[in-house]
Amino acid sequence: MTTVSLTVNGQSVTADVDPRTLLVQFLRENLRLTGTHVGCDTSQCGACVVHLNGQAVKACTVLAVQADASVVTTIEGLAQGGELHPMQAAFREHHGLQCGYCTPGMIMAAVDMVNRKGSNLDEQTIRAELEGNLCRCTGYHNIVKAVAAGAQAMVQNPVRQAAE
């Protein structure tokens, strides 16, 4: 067992883990943060995307021990003060989800996209940047709309963006 200490959604966490524990397992099983999902075993589907030190990563391809001394934000940590993050609100408003399983990873990827690419995202950019996230329900049409709208809303509401 190896000891890891990290900050998850603003809370300090320390635990002894088997080194083979993946970050996603640690979040789901140790911390019971089950909003981060697992949809494949080849690092492709993106259902497990979380932010590690402010960057989107696939939590199924990071060992918990690699996240030692890091800051992790999961979908559960995005909304602040009981109010949805603008990207969460945009997914709801634009029907960017159906079964909801890919949604946490999609939203975390979308927020990261805005952090990297800014708020004026055209359709082509959004589609290209969603390379690492699979959705089987929506045909992506409304996800693209949601990301574009959420990006705009993040700028209009910079306080919320700073929450991360």
Binding site: T34, G35, I75, Y101, T103
Partner: peptide, 9 residues
Amino acid sequence: DQRFVTGQG
């Protein structure tokens, strides 16, 4: 959607 977008599904 409230629960799905917040990871509470």
